[in-house]
Amino acid sequence: MGFKLLSKLLVYLTASIMAIASPLAFSVDSSGEYPTVSEIPVGEVRLYQIADGVWSHIATQSFDGAVYPSNGLIVRDGDELLLIDTAWGAKNTAALLAEIEKQIGLPVTRAVSTHFHDDRVGGVDVLRAAGVATYASPSTRRLAEVEGNEIPTHSLEGLSSSGDAVRFGPVELFYPGAAHSTDNLIVYVPSASVLYGGCAIYELSRTSAGNVADADLAEWPTSIERIQQHYPEAQFVIPGHGLPGGLDLLKHTTNVVKAHTNRSVVE
Rank of each mutant, 00 (worst) to 15 (best):
L5N: 10
I17Y: 08
A129H: 10
Y34F: 15
Q235M: 10
S181N: 01
D164P: 07
Y48G: 10
V108Q: 00
S181E: 01
G210T: 03
S62F: 05
S264L: 10
I50G: 01
T222I: 09
Y188D: 03
H154A: 09
N255P: 05
L247Q: 12
V265C: 04
T140A: 05
S31R: 09
G148Y: 07
K4I: 11
D85V: 01
G43I: 03
T207V: 13
A15H: 13
L249S: 04
V146I: 11
L47S: 02
A51K: 06
Y188R: 00
E80W: 05
A87F: 01
D183S: 00
G105E: 09
L13T: 13
S139V: 13
K102E: 12
A87H: 00
D183F: 02
H252W: 05
D214S: 07
A59I: 10
Y12V: 09
P69L: 15
I104M: 05
D183R: 00
V265H: 09
T134P: 01
S191L: 09
I20V: 15
T86Y: 04
V54W: 03
A144I: 08
P190L: 08
A218M: 14
S56L: 15
L243R: 15
S70Q: 00
V126R: 05
S162R: 14
F63H: 07
K91R: 15
Y175F: 09
D214Y: 05
H154E: 12
G197P: 06
C199T: 02
T222P: 08
G43F: 07
K8C: 14
S16N: 05
S205P: 10
E99Q: 14
G72I: 00
P170F: 04
G105A: 11
Y188K: 00
T222G: 12
L156V: 08
T254M: 12
S137V: 05
Y68F: 15
G197R: 02
H180W: 01
S223W: 01
D119L: 00
T109A: 11
W220T: 00
V265D: 13
I227P: 02
S56P: 09
L82V: 09
A19F: 15
Q228P: 06
L73V: 04
P176V: 01
L5G: 07
M1Y: 05
T109F: 08
K8A: 10
L250H: 04
R141I: 10
M1L: 06
A200E: 03
D85H: 04
G210W: 03
D119P: 00
T254L: 13
D64P: 06
S22D: 15
E267N: 07
K251A: 10
P138C: 03
T134I: 02
K251W: 12
F3M: 13
I186Y: 01
G78F: 07
D214A: 06
A94T: 15
S139T: 13
D164W: 07
I58L: 15
L10C: 11
H115F: 01
D52Y: 09
A213I: 12
N262W: 10
A200S: 07
E33V: 10
T261V: 14
A213G: 10
T14R: 05
L217I: 10
L47V: 12
E147T: 13
L10E: 13
H180P: 02
H230L: 11
F168P: 04
E44N: 11
L83W: 03
R120Q: 01
G122P: 05
L81K: 00
A213Q: 12
A98Q: 13
D214W: 05
V256W: 02
I40G: 15
W55Q: 00
K91M: 14
A133Q: 14
A51C: 04
G198R: 03
P232Q: 10
V108F: 01
T86H: 00
S56T: 15
S70Y: 02
Y135W: 08
T109P: 05
S160K: 13
W88N: 00
Y12D: 15
S31N: 10
D183Q: 01
N92G: 06
V124M: 09
A87D: 00
V166K: 10
A218V: 12
Y135N: 02
P221T: 12
L82S: 03
S139L: 12
I84R: 01
D214M: 05
S22R: 12
I17Q: 05
A15W: 06
A234R: 01
I20T: 10
L247R: 14
A179H: 05
G198P: 02
L250I: 07
A213D: 13
T109R: 13
S31Y: 14
D119C: 02
N71C: 01
G2M: 05
L24H: 15
V75R: 02
V108A: 08
R167N: 10
V189R: 00
S27L: 10
H252T: 02
S193F: 13
S193D: 13
A98E: 14
S162D: 11
W88F: 01
E80C: 06
I186E: 01
S139R: 11
I50E: 03
S191H: 15
L5K: 15
E150F: 02
L143I: 14
G72C: 02
L10H: 12
K251G: 13
Y135Q: 00
T109W: 06
V37A: 15
D118I: 05
V126D: 04
P152F: 00
I20F: 08
H230N: 12
V108P: 08
T254P: 05
R226T: 07
G210N: 04
E233H: 12
P35K: 13
V67T: 15
T140L: 03
R110E: 09
G163W: 06
W220N: 02
S31M: 09
P23L: 12
R263I: 13
D77Q: 04
R142I: 12
Y34A: 15
G105C: 05
E147M: 14
A25K: 14
G2H: 14
A21W: 09
L13M: 14
S208K: 10
E203R: 00
T14S: 08
V112D: 06
V146K: 13
G32Y: 12
M18C: 14
A90N: 08
H241F: 01
S162E: 14
L185D: 02
V166H: 08
N92P: 04
S70N: 02
D118K: 04
G32I: 07
R226L: 08
L13F: 11
D52W: 08
V28C: 06
A144H: 04
Q103H: 15
Y135K: 02
A51V: 13
K251T: 11
V67N: 15
D125Y: 10
Q103G: 10
Y68R: 03
P69S: 15
